[in-house]
Nucleic acid binder design. Structure first.
Length: 788
DNA sequence: AGAACGCCAATTTTT
DNA sequence: TTGGCGTTCT
């Protein structure tokens, strides 16, 4: 069938979109279906099984996104659906963007106009805005970020006279999030659980919190889905409208859905029952965040008659890596079972090596990276994946010391940084004077002499008059409620906001933002601050204002930021990537280093304590995710001693190491070169002396590192190949340092992105000894330094 | 208001 | 060992 009757029927009334689809079809038909070419049999089955429920179990590297996007192209090209008939949900904005992009590549501009392709939350928002009044909101409700949410919770806790120290907002927040993740409204929370928090007040707090949200005309992230459920349950006609609208539903990363998302999907899917879920139970690593692996395990039960397609052919990794990953994940019991296979060569075995301590492990990783670099491997094809962020420090330190360029992926997101949240708060109040949470945030930032007492007075007034804080402030300055000092401060603020509000619409919004940041004294506040990160924050603010230009108006920009908590990662420079295993999902690299495979760290003790066997299995899936990120090389390591919370403790290699299939693993051991010499037990006595970091010093270090084994541990990891590494690198560094005289001299004031401002104490080629104001004396490469 | 101290806790993190 | 937080002192 090439032309679905509904599509044809609608074409008269809905000419424009259909004609785009028709054009797309026309352009495709002459060649048949070129987009299907190059798919393997299973992928093709997953694409062509258009009707009825479908579960695609897509192992790592098996072409999951390709199937998803081709499926959409297929639906459109065959006329089974128009772009706006298809609901396609992902978890992250990145995934949504990627899909849009690839669909565009497959079917041309027709793919651009997929209005229902997005994250659960963005689609939930879109739906809620249309029917906001049915759940007690106005359509311009604000979406609260984590920080607003916590502030609000704190208020609710205090209002209910609960000791905020015994029952911190954090704990309440996680309880409420948990309930929302499970699709539970306050009245639906099991009494037992509601009782458990704050002497039986859990339920009341949840209700009170929801009530506060409504008065603020705000929703938190959980609400974006939960309120859809409420909306649909209470308004069957609205639900039916959406059920009819979405002829086809596609879900990415189904293994990560929580109960609320599952219910959300199930309600919608009850219309046409054409729901295709793509996921991999072996990559479910977000259980701690409410994801239910059970959703994917139960799919066939929930959607009877479902077609299940397994994608097991891996196009990413070489044989040994795949064998190692498969062997490991096979130890899990709660899984649907897949066996990844490849037609690629066996390739290099996965390597396992030990180090005396975590510092040495970091050194070994850095050294191995340098030796790859010497062999012309791009740094951008190398990643270091750790279990917890705390592991990054030692590795970063080492990279900084060697001048090895790296980038940390993940970490605090752009829009979560304090300066950005502050700037946003100003804009939010300007755009929406009733945004009390935003108002409170910047009420006294920068300092304008307004303290708690003033805020309390405003709150009291606001409650008494039933008006937002800003309005209350406007009224209060006309009275004698406040002391003169506070009164003038509040008046200035109120007048500023009136002025700024008038600017909106008459000036480009990025200019308005710029004006606000300047007139409020906010920019000045950071200029005066001279801590290490102030410069970076100002830089972020500039970037923030610049990024506004991409949006048509202030409202559109604010909507974007509340949902898309990310900054555009600047690509380009050749750098090693450093991130947690969680952040690595979905990425791939030629070479992957996996340090810290020690029991207690990985699998993580806490996961084990809190979730027992399920926790262990999730950790194992995390290991599987880590291994399958590698195309050609996976390098595991562990340390025998690690500093945990400041104390050194001895550790035991991860149980996962012994679960790897022997045939695919190379244990690197060269006891003779075990480099205990450079461990903390035998440190260079003058690490900050002026000769530190010179080629000669480095040579000395390299020699020490090669000399003898002070301890009895038999596992080291210096292979004959990378033993030549340091010397060549050293050659490189010499070459660099003799190339041009340094632009820096002693006593010069400089700035380093990591260590902040400092004074040059010594110059040696391209290496500087700098006395940092905050970080003390460090050796750094001049390329990491700017004149201050 | 801001520095300075002491205490406590300490995975993973998107929207 | 760090960092975040609240308290107390200037």
């Amino acid at each position: 069938m090439t032309q679905h009757s509904d599509a044809a029927g609608a074409s008269a009334s809905d000419a424009a979109p259909t004609s785009i689809a028709a054009r797309a079809m026309a352009s495709l038909r002459p060649q048949g279906s070129p987009y299907l070419e190059g798919l393997n049999a299973e992928q093709r089955r997953a694409v062509e099984a258009t009707d009825g429920p479908v579960l695609v179990l897509a192992g790592a590297g098996t072409g999951k996104t390709r199937v998803l996007t081709t499926r959409i192209a297929h639906l459109i090209a065959t006329g089974k659906a128009r772009p706006f008939d298809i609901l396609s949900v992902t978890f992250t904005n990145k995934a949504a963007r990627e899909m849009k992009h690839r669909i565009g590549g497959l079917i041309g501009p027709a793919g651009e106009g997929m209005p229902w392709l997005g994250t659960f939350h963005s689609i939930g928002t879109k739906i809620l805005r249309r029917h906001a009044e049915l759940v007690g909101l106005r359509s311009d409700f604000t979406i609260l970020g984590m920080d607003d949410q916590l502030r609000l919770m704190k208020q609710v806790i205090v209002d209910q006279n609960i000791d905020e120290k015994r029952w911190p907002a954090r704990a309440l927040s996680s309880a409420i999030d948990g309930w929302k993740n499970r699709g539970l409204l306050p009245e639906q929370v099991p009494p037992g659980e509601a009782q458990a928090f704050a002497f039986g007040k859990g339920g009341a707090l949840y209700s009170a919190y929801q009530a506060r949200l409504l008065t603020l005309n705000a929703a938190d992230f959980g609400d974006l889905l939960l309120l859809c459920l409420k909306l649909w349950r209470e308004n069957p006609d609205v639900l039916e409208n959406y059920q009819q609208r979405f002829r086809y539903i596609l879900v990415d990363e189904y293994q990560d859905t929580n109960v609320a998302q599952y219910l959300w999907l199930r309600l919608l899917a009850q219309g046409h029952r054409n729901v295709a879920c793509v996921g991999d139970d072996d990559q479910s690593i977000y259980g701690w965040r409410g994801a239910e692996v059970d959703n994917i395990l139960r799919f066939e039960h929930d959607f009877p008659g479902a077609v299940v397609v397994r994608l097991e052919r891996n196009y990413r990794s070489t044989g040994h890596i795949l064998a190692a990953a498969s062997g490991l994940i096979a130890k899990n019991e709660g899984r649907l079972g897949k066996t990844l296979r490849t037609e690629d060569v066996a390739g290099e075995k996965v390597t396992v090596s030990g180090a005396w301590d975590s510092e040495e492990e970091a050194r070994q990783v850095a050294e191995a990276i340098e030796s790859l670099q010497v062999k012309q491997h791009p740094l951008s094809e190398i990643a270091v994946l750790v279990r917890i962020s705390a592991q990054m420090r030692e590795i970063e330190d080492r990279f900084v010391q060697l001048g090895l360029p790296y980038r940390v992926i993940g970490g605090p997101r752009f829009y979560e940084r304090a300066e950005i949240r502050d700037a946003l708060a100003y804009l939010r109040v300007t755009a929406n004077p009733s945004d009390d949470l935003a108002f409170e945030r910047i009420f006294n930032t920068p300092k304008r002499g307004l303290g708690d007492a003033t805020l309390q007075a405003l709150h009291a007034f606001s409650r008494a008059q039933g008006v937002p804080l800003l309005q209350a402030a406007r009224l209060v300055v006309e009275t004698d409620e406040l002391k003169p000092r506070a009164r003038s401060g509040v008046r200035a603020l109120v007048e500023s906001f009136s002025r700024w509000s008038r600017l909106v619409g008459s000036q480009p919004h990025s200019e308005v933002a710029q004006t606000i940041l300047e007139e409020s004294g906010y920019t000045e506040m950071w200029q005066k601050e001279k801590s290490a990160d102030a410069a970076g924050r100002l830089e972020n603010l500039k970037e923030f204002v610049r990024s506004m230009e991409e949006f048509p108006d202030l409202a559109a920009f604010l909507e974007h930021v509340s949902l898309v908590m990310e900054a555009s990662e600047q690509e380009g420079a050749d750098r090693v990537s450093l991130m947690t295993l969680h952040a690595a999902k979905g990425l791939e690299f030629d070479t992957v280093f996996l340090p810290g495979w020690e029991d207690g760290l990985f699998p993580n003790q806490r996961a084990l304590d809190e979730s027992g066997r399920a926790g262990l299995e999730e950790e194992r899936r995390l290991a599987h995710v880590g291994l399958t990120r590698a195309r050609k090389r996976a390098k595991l390591s562990f340390a025998v001693n690690r500093r945990i919370h400041g104390l050194w403790s001895s550790t035991v290699p991860s149980r996962f190491i012994d679960e790897l299939p022997e045939d695919s693993v190379d244990v690197l051991d060269a006891p003779a070169h075990f480099s205990a010499g450079a461990s903390r037990f035998d440190r260079n006595p003058t690490p900050f002396g002026s000769s530190y970091g010179t080629p000669g010093w480095q040579r000395a270090q390299a020699n020490t590192a090669q000399s003898g084994n002070a301890n009895g541990y038999g596992v080291g990891n210096r292979t004959p190949t990378n033993r030549g590494g340091p010397r060549q690198i050293e050659g490189e560094l010499i070459a660099k340092s003799t190339g041009a005289p340094s632009a820096f001299s002693v006593d010069m004031r400089v700035f380093h992105t990591k260590f902040g401002p400092g004074t040059v104490a010594g110059v040696d080629g391209n290496k500087l000894t700098v006395d940092f104001d905050k970080a003390g004396r460090k050796m750094v490469l001049d390329s990491f330094i700017q004149a201050a």
